[in-house]
């Protein structure tokens, strides 16, 4: 500062002004320009939301007529005949996602706790965090093929078990990173207070930090569930599909997204109708827990 002196100061200031493109003589144009750009940005938001609205409206309009008691309680009718439902696929989806949750939630939450723990951060934590990040961006198709080579080939059959495992792999990194980020939002002072009481770090995480952040962790889990509940891709290589109701984990199992794909790709109008209704139910299954988690879960809203 001393060496720059007053002249230098003025000079840098002018250079900054030049670079920032602000000229004092065009105030009116600048205001108009600002309004225009703000308007364009608002337009972008509207476009996004309009697309959402259009798609949702279509699905509602096309899907509602097909929703009846039969749709929820009956397996599919024989090919070409009207009627039938997706009972087998709804239960199948619930079983598969449930299986995935059983594996991915404890594993993911534990890994998230490990990453957020108040210890000296080693290279291991950084590496694991990075792996989870990268894994969450890898397409779900690779999870499917991985489980195919690991489980299906060895068991010589497609199975619901393999399907659950594949979905778990897709869920795992999402749960891990979400848990970590939410736990990190818990004020540091809280962790320090507990540590200063002579409580070991994992007890601090489990009994103090986790309960404080429970709501956020749960919301993160619903997001991860939403991600896998609607994705048939890993199932192509693992659980495949099943025309009948089945709860046998060693056999192929139907799922809602798989059935939607099959019905949509099929040649019959009755199938297409089932696909639309299936899509509506699928969206319900996905969005309902997300909304519910936000509305009814008690807990401490941690401000971002």
């Amino acid at each position: 500062m001393d060496r720059l002196g007053a002249a230098g100061y003025r000079e840098t200031n002018e250079r900054d002004m030049g670079k920032s493109g602000i000229s004092l003589y065009s105030g009116r144009w600048r205001q108009i320009h600002c309004r225009m750009m703000t308007g364009l940005c608002a337009l972008a938001v509207l476009t996004l939301l309009a697309v959402l609205l259009i798609i949702m409206t279509y699905i509602l309009l096309q899907g509602i007529p097909g929703l009846n008691w039969q749709f929820f309680t009956r397996p599919p009718a024989p090919v070409g005949l009207p009627g039938g439902g997706v009972y087998h696929a709804i239960t199948g989806s619930l079983v598969l996602v449930g299986l995935a949750c059983l594996i991915a939630i404890p594993w993911g939450v534990a890994a998230g706790i490990f990453l957020a723990a108040p210890r000296r951060p080693g290279p291991l934590a950084a590496l694991v965090r990075f792996t989870a990040d990268v894994l969450s961006g890898v397409p779900s198709i690779t999870a499917g093929i991985f489980i195919y080579t690991l489980v299906v080939v060895r068991m010589h059959t497609f199975s619901a078990l393999a399907g659950g495992l594949a979905l778990a792999i897709v869920m795992l990194p999402v749960v891990t990173r979400n848990t970590e980020e939410i736990l990190r939002l818990v004020p540091r002072g809280l962790q320090e207070a507990a540590l200063a009481l002579g409580i070991s770090w994992w007890r601090v995480m489990l009994h103090i930090v986790l309960p404080t952040a429970a709501r956020g962790v749960a919301i993160g889990i619903t997001l991860a569930m939403a991600g896998v509940a609607g994705d048939p891709v890993p199932l192509f290589f693992t659980a495949l599909n099943n025309n009948h109701f089945s709860l046998d984990l060693t056999q192929p199992m139907a799922s809602l997204p798989m059935e939607i794909f099959r019905y949509a790709a099929g040649p019959f109008v009755t199938w297409h109708r089932l696909a639309w209704s299936g899509a509506l139910v699928l969206i319900g299954i996905i969005l309902l827990p997300m909304l519910l988690a936000r509305i009814i879960l008690p807990g401490y809203r941690i401000r971002r």
Partner: peptide, 10 residues
């Protein structure tokens, strides 16, 4: 500590 940091969930 400087600021009272009680555990809010308890």
């Amino acid at each position: 500590f400087q600021t009272p940091n009680i555990f809010p969930a308890m």
